[in-house]
Design a protein around this nucleic acid. Structure first.
Length: 847
RNA sequence: GGGCAAGUGGUGGAAUGGCAUACACGAAGGACUUAAAAUCCUUUGGCCGCAAGGUCGUGAGGGUUCAACUCCCUCCUUGCCCACCA
């Protein structure tokens, strides 16, 4: 048995982060480091992070967004910008309402509690904001203006009401947003989502479809991925709308096609079950009753299964025919479940030979298949084809167009249709109008009043906000909870002052978040949503940072609202976010971090164990920030070790040993590095300036935090090669060393602000480090007198030679060929080519 | 079916035409310690070799080039988004 004392755990902490982090956080807040006076907009930089929904608590995956934003803000600050970084909360929404139904706590209470928790977490991370500008979307002072935007859209005819099919969860008894429907089932309870036909409010985003598409070109600094997703979502296609004459009826049937070149191959027409002409077409047909029954079945089914692509094709013949205008053939009209009423005209000309869906349908109902686009080398045979020929080819069986390339015929036939007035060119979009009404409680009420005399009346600005009443029974019944609040519903008509009723639906929370970035500039303004003059100075946002999951919805809606506000001259810009950065997700155990999967890593414990700087550093070092990354608890220890190394470097070498030249015992034992080709002080000075260059380029050229940090690690490693005794007696080395250490601290400061601030002050420098100028590298310090040239023979590395950096070609050639290894390899061989990449490489090509 | 990413050591990743594997994790060994932790140092792609060195090697196959992880073509795999969109 031993009687030695047990180890004490105090040394587990290699530097006192628990003391310094709260200290500097308080310092920044007391000094108002992040407070901005928007009146001075010279060198402004608007750094915006997507504001969060206030859920219970943040995990380290959320943290990535805020940490990245904080690094950008601090870096830009040191580059002399007047940086605005505000934060707020997207505080309306279903989760709080559901929690309230379960737990009985009012959504407002739980939301405000969650905001408190999240704010504390952000504070502990050392992520700083101008909190005076906080914007909370459930605050009446904010949603007043959300409602105001609604009324403006309504005035311009861009907010309207219509009957529409919406997603309905029978078990939650509520309407769901499209994004809450996953593979046809409710996101939360997994029951099958039904469709209900309800009166709904829409924003006419389709009015902006072309501009939303075209203006993507104005956004060169958005990720291509996001632009591609938006483009895809808007889904523009150009084609021809054909007018088909219906045999024995006065009506024309309009069909939209992008493949007018296949018109001669149309062997049937297919209508969506919901097409308005369906009843008229089948009336009088011998099998009218059964047909209608089958069509009604399709109507019911097709809507449920719309989310499910693998539904079998089904159809009913109407008994009617159209006349194909190009060849006067009779073409039968069918009703088919795969045709969508929402797209195009809800009717298509079906060309089985050249469209896979039409092909399957034709096979099923034994309809004719006619090849009109052929490949002369491998002619198609309609009888034996296994699938449709989708691609281009040579026109066949197409009258006057035979022999043309199909891509030419597309234009020729379109011209022909327009000349003969048989149809016209037409552009279609997949984008649908934005359904914004929700039969839910926890949202901004739609500011509309229904008056028996005046009809639909929007609430005038002086009566806004329409306050969300607090005492409402919001248990799900399938109807808007506000319907049951008599005080809320019964009101006076703003026009005739007679009794009237309020709209009881609330707005989609995406409406709240589609303009919040404008509110931050003048967050407390009472008489306007924002000050146009100031907003025009501060926007567009210089850097927007957020998750790619918002690539379509939030970013598209925000662009739409910005364009609308531009059109009504509220703003002078029509794109809100100049630069967009979308960070990757943090993965744990192969899945996205989420509470339901039970793989969340809480920052609170990590910060308690290692400090915020370690968590920040690891989050930034884990990999390229735009990519997903697997979280490893081990990895945090590496970051922690590195910070300890920096701490000891500054504390021991610089502040004590250098001055006293005493030499800390542990440090004096550091080995003296092996001889280098240059004097060590030169090499360290050069490395210092190369590191400044590299870190600056990594931050300016993109968000390459991981490589910036690794280059600082290299510099730290190099300083460890110098021993204390080496420095102590050499004034030049001391200078080089302190320059390196200062560079390390300042270059690290955006990433790990607390330790940097502490070390900076320990070095005797004035606080705050974030009021310092970002260092610039010295060109003369990075030039080399001697460079190492890599010598390849026939592309293979064979040797390295050191040459003066200003060597001429002939001299270099001689030195390279004089190298013993090269001499041996090249002896007796003919040198065919001698390629020189200056200061880098030589490649000798021999026979 | 369409669109977009990505595929490199035991692991996260670096290198965007010029030394493949920087930096870090993990592992092994050493110094310090009664011991451990911490710290500091060394080694660490495979194969052959005592070594010097050689050789193979960035999902697969081809191509362009003096030179390819990088550019081009074909294919495979994984992930994400969209999807009976005419």
């Amino acid at each position: 048995m031993t009687d030695y004392p047990q180890p004490t755990p105090q040394d587990e902490r290699s530097y006192p982060f628990d003391k310094i982090e709260p200290k500097w956080q308080k310092f920044w807040r007391d000094k108002g480091l992040f407070k901005v006076d928007t009146a001075s907009y010279k060198d402004k930089f608007y750094c915006l992070m997507m504001f969060p929904y206030p859920s219970a608590a943040l995990h380290v995956g959320h943290g990535r967004n805020y940490i990245i934003g904080d690094v950008v803000a601090r870096y830009k600050m040191m580059r002399g910008f007047n940086v605005l970084t505000p934060m707020g909360f997207d505080a309306f929404g279903l989760p709080a309402e559901n929690a309230a139904i379960k737990g009985g706590i009012h959504p407002e209470e739980s939301t405000l509690n969650n905001i408190k928790t999240m704010k504390r977490q952000l504070d502990q991370w050392g992520v700083e904001y101008d909190w005076d500008r906080i914007v909370i979307s459930c605050d009446p002072a904010y949603y007043k203006w959300t409602q105001w935007i609604f009324t403006k859209l309504y005035e311009k005819g861009l907010a309207y009401k219509k009957k529409a099919f919406v997603n309905w969860c029978p078990s939650c008894k509520t309407v769901l947003a499209n994004e809450q429907v996953v593979n046809g089932a409710c996101e939360r309870c997994d029951s099958e989502v039904l469709q209900k036909d309800l009166e709904q409010w829409f924003f006419k985003i389709t009015h902006y479809a072309e501009r939303l598409l075209k203006d993507l070109e104005k956004l060169p600094n958005w990720p291509d991925r996001v632009k591609a997703m938006q483009k895809n979502w808007i889904g523009k296609s150009e084609g021809v709308e054909i007018d088909f004459k219906i045999e024995n009826l006065a009506d024309t049937l309009k069909c939209y096609t992008t493949r007018i070149d296949t018109i001669y191959g149309a062997t049937f027409i297919a209508l969506a079950p919901e097409h308005p002409l369906v009843e008229k077409l089948i009336s009088g047909s011998p099998d009218e009753k059964n047909s209608l029954k089958a069509i009604n079945k399709m109507r019911a089914e097709s809507k449920i299964s719309r989310a499910d692509a693998e539904v079998a094709k089904e159809g009913v013949f109407t008994g009617r025919f159209v006349i194909n205008p190009v060849n006067h053939e009779k073409v039968p009209i069918w009703v088919a479940n795969y045709i969508l009423m929402e797209y195009g005209t809800g009717a298509i000309m079906a060309v089985p030979a050249h469209d896979q869906r039409d092909f399957e349908f034709a096979k099923l109902y034994k309809l004719p298949i006619k090849v009109v686009i052929d490949d002369p080398k491998h002619p198609l045979d309609a009888g034996t084809m296994k699938e449709a020929h989708i691609g281009e080819g040579i026109m066949a069986n197409s009258g006057q167009f035979n022999g043309m390339k199909s891509e030419v015929a597309v234009e020729k036939i379109a011209d022909y249709f327009e000349e003969k007035k048989m149809g016209k060119r037409s552009t279609q979009y997949k984008l649908r109008d934005w359904l914004i009404s929700r039969q839910r409680y926890w949202g901004a009420p739609i500011p509309i009043v229904y008056c028996p005399k005046c009809g639909i009346v929007s609430v005038p600005e002086k009566d806004l906000p329409v306050l969300l009443p607090k005492n409402v029974e919001f248990r799900p019944t399938g109807e808007s909870p506000l319907k049951f609040s008599e005080d809320f519903v019964n009101t006076k008509c703003p026009k005739c002052h007679g009794p009237a009723k309020r709209e009881t639906d609330t707005m989609d929370t995406f409406v709240d978040s589609s303009w919040y970035y404008l509110r931050y500039i003048t967050p407390k303004l009472k008489d306007k949503p924002f000050d146009t003059g100031l907003v025009n100075r501060w926007l567009p946002v210089d850097q927007y940072i957020g998750g790619v999951e918002h690539a379509i919805l939030h970013l598209l809606y925000s662009r739409f609202i910005t364009k609308f506000l531009f059109d009504i001259k509220m703003t002078g810009f029509d794109e809100p976010f100049k630069n967009l950065f979308t960070q990757g997700m943090i993965i744990k155990d192969g899945a996205k971090m989420s509470k339901s999967k039970g793989n969340v890593v809480s920052p609170d414990k990590l910060i308690a164990d290692y400090g915020a700087d370690t968590v920040r550093l690891y989050t930034l070092f884990i990999g390229p920030p735009e990519k997903d990354a697997e979280w490893s608890d081990r990895g945090t220890e590496g970051s922690y070790r590195f910070l300890g190394r920096v701490w000891r470097l500054v504390e021991k070498i610089h502040s004590s040993s250098l001055r006293g030249a005493e030499g800390d015992e542990a440090i004096s034992k550091v080995k003296i590095a092996s001889a280098a080709s240059q004097p060590r002080n030169d090499s360290l000075k050069r490395k210092t300036h190369l590191t400044i260059k590299k870190v600056t380029e990594d931050l300016d050229g993109g968000f390459h935090f991981n490589t910036a940090i690794s280059s600082i690690m290299e510099l730290v490693n190099e300083t460890y090669d110098l021993s204390v005794s080496e420095i102590a007696n050499d004034a030049v080395k001391q200078k080089v060393m302190s320059e390196a250490v200062e560079a390390i601290v300042i270059l690290l400061s955006p990433f790990v602000p607390h330790i940097a601030e502490e070390l900076w002050s320990n070095l005797g420098k004035p606080s705050s480090i974030f009021r310092m100028k970002w260092p610039e590298y010295d060109r003369s310090a990075i030039v080399e007198d001697v460079v190492t040239i890599v010598v390849q023979v026939n592309g293979k590395l064979r040797s390295k030679v050191e040459v003066p950096s200003d060597i001429k070609e002939e001299g270099l050639r001689q030195m390279v060929l004089a190298d013993p290894k090269i001499k041996e390899i090249t002896s007796g061989k003919t040198i065919k080519n001698f390629i020189i990449v200056p200061k880098k490489l030589v490649n000798i090509v021999i026979g």
